[in-house]
Each structure stands twice: as C-alpha cells, then as structure tokens.
C-alpha cells in the first residue's frame, strides 16, 4: 500500500471557534493506481489533499493518521516534511498561472525542486530540467527553460507545473483540479500525459475533481465526498454502472448525455450544509429524495454494497447487506443497534 489515510479529521479555527472541515476520512491509494476524489465545492476535497501534504494553516487541528509507505506523515516535524514535499509527494494545483511564480523563469522554478532534494550540480540540474520539459511534451524545451510563465499558454503552464511536480520522481502525485482552468482539448492532453507519467514512474495519483468526465477517463477507483465525509467508495467502473448513495446518483444524473434530450438536467436541490451547523444525522438528508426519519437523527455507518464498493447510507444498512467498517470498528457516533 502506498498511501493509507486513517480516520482523518481536520478542524480549522474561524472567528475564535474550531469548525470541523473533515470528519473521519479514510481511504487508501495503491502503487500505480489513480484514485479520484469527487464532490461539490466545499465538500473537503482540497482540504484532504492539503492535509496529506500538511500544507495547512497554523491553527489547523489535524487528527488521525496518514502513512506514506512506512512513514507516518502526520508525525513528522517541519524539517522532515520539507524533505518529503516535492520529493516523495508532489502536488499540482488548479490554476497554473497563479500557481507559478511570475518573477522566476521556468528553468529556475523546476530547478528549485531539484536543488532542494537532489545532489545534482548546476549543470546537471539544467540538463534534467530540459529533459523534464521534453518529457511533459513541451516543444522548444531549450528556449522555454529561460522563459517566464506569462510567455506561455495555459496548457504549457500546466505542463510546467507537472514538470515541477515530477522533478524528483515522487511516489505520490496529488492533482487538485488540474484541468479545470484549461480548454477542453488541452484537458485531454494533460490527462493523457499524467496517465503516461504514472505508468513510467509507477506512482500513485490522487485526482481531485468535480468533473466526472475526468474521473471516467483516468481513475481506477473513486471516493465520493460530501460535507467533509466519504459517502461512497468503489472501483470507477462499478461506481459509474451502479451508484448507490443518493448523492452519487444525483451527481451522475447531472452529467448531460449526448443523444438524450431532456428539458431539464438533473440537479440536486439545496446546498452543502456549512460546518457551523452540521446536521446531527446524515449530512445529505436535507437534500435527499429518499430520506427517512432515521437519516435525520443518526449518522449512517459505512456498509458494503457491492464488490469493493462501500456507501454510508441508511438505505443499505437496513437491507442488511452486511456491515463493513472502513475505519476499523469503533465509531461512537454511528450507532446502529437493534
């Protein structure tokens, strides 16, 4: 197992009080696997990524465990984290223009990762940078080394970001909406490139996105998040063919399909509840068309709903498909006792 996230909870301080942003999130990433994390904005996808990188604000309270191979990331000191970031775990962000330093040349920005994590000499670093630029499919690599982000197009900038992330051959690559700010044609190229790099380096990828098209294209496995909790988890094909959680079903119905003309696209009414007043029971209950009385009163636990497929929903728990604890048993608030 490459990455193991166990019972991760995150609270951020806002206006004097702590708000729980992530609640008991658990998942794994295997070597050579792409895990998709999907959900609406504000459901905690990006915060999950930043928690793994430990790139959180000072006043954040992080509970639970994150292990990368045998290293427990949640127990590392600042200095130890600096050695891991950009080296064993890299991250690509949504907007490549604002994520690159406008005042540093492309070569300097990629070279910095090499400078921080390798013993390469200046000349070797420069050679490696040019090699990386070619690897991410940039033409005229020799010239682009000396150019600045503002001279490049959006797709080229994202390729530069990927080159920075790939500089030290990371074990895990976290992509936070890497194609959202790009043209559709460029999106496909970038996704292809990431698939290619994954195979070349045998690394794991976490792909955070709200675009189910991206998930279908690159992800092996998917977790669906809602309001800071994992509500469904399964292999991508299984999840698309057989979504279980009403929220996942709602998400699937909101994708327009070619050839089908509907007057109205499926949409989920309402909005994500704010961390300030989280409902006591299932967090999706207020927007769910199948909600029952029990949904509003108690939180559902995670149950197995298919092969390698789990969901946290009362619908399946009552049918008795069998209980399954993704988080090793003890869940004090998930009380389901007959």
């Amino acid at each position: 197992m490459l990455l193991n996230v166990e019972n991760l909870s995150l609270s951020l301080k806002k206006d004097g009080s702590y708000l729980k942003i992530l609640d008991d999130v658990s998942f794994q990433v295997e070597k050579g696997e792409t895990l998709g994390i999907v959900g609406e904005s504000g459901c905690g996808k990006s915060m999950t990524a930043l928690s793994i990188m430990r790139l959180l604000p000072d006043k954040a309270k992080l509970e639970g465990k994150v292990n990368l191979e045998k290293k427990e990331i949640t127990a590392l000191s600042k200095k130890q984290l600096e050695k891991i970031r950009g080296n064993q775990i890299s991250m690509i962000f949504q907007d490549p223009l604002t994520s690159l330093n406008p005042l540093h040349s492309v070569g300097k920005q990629i070279g910095e990762a090499l400078y921080l994590h390798t013993e390469l000499s200046k000349i070797e670093r420069k050679q490696r940078v040019v090699h990386l630029l070619k690897e991410v499919g940039l033409p005229r690599a020799d010239e682009i080394v000396n150019e600045y982000p503002h001279q490049l197009s959006g797709g080229m900038r994202q390729r530069v970001m990927i080159a920075i992330a790939m500089a030290c051959n990371p074990r895990l690559l976290i992509c936070d909406e890497p194609t959202t700010a790009l043209d559709v044609t460029v999106q496909a190229q970038i996704l292809d490139l990431m698939n290619k790099l994954k195979q070349m380096n045998d690394m794991g990828i976490i792909m955070i996105t709200h675009d189910l098209g991206v998930v279908a294209e690159v992800c092996d496995r998917v977790i669906v998040m809602y309001a800071g909790k994992v509500v469904e988890q399964g292999m991508a094909e299984e999840l698309f063919a057989n979504p279980k959680h009403p929220y996942t079903i709602g998400l699937m119905q909101s994708i327009p399909k070619l050839g089908e003309r509907k007057n109205q696209l499926g949409s989920i009414p309402g909005t994500v509840p704010s961390p300030k007043n989280m409902p006591l029971g299932c967090r999706f209950a207020d927007r769910c068309n199948k909600a029952m009385d029990i949904c509003r009163g108690k939180q559902p636990s995670t149950v197995e709903v298919g092969p390698n497929h789990t969901a946290a929903c009362w619908l399946y728990e009552e049918k008795g498909v069998g209980r399954y604890d993704a988080s090793r048993g003890e869940r004090s608030e998930a009380t389901f006792h007959h």
Binding site: M53, R85, S90, F93, E112, L116
Partner: peptide, 9 residues
Amino acid sequence: RTAYAKGGS
C-alpha cells in the same frame, strides 16, 4: 503555496 509544496523552507 507551490513553493511550500516543493519542499521549500
């Protein structure tokens, strides 16, 4: 944030 993500002190 990118600079921190690269492992910069």
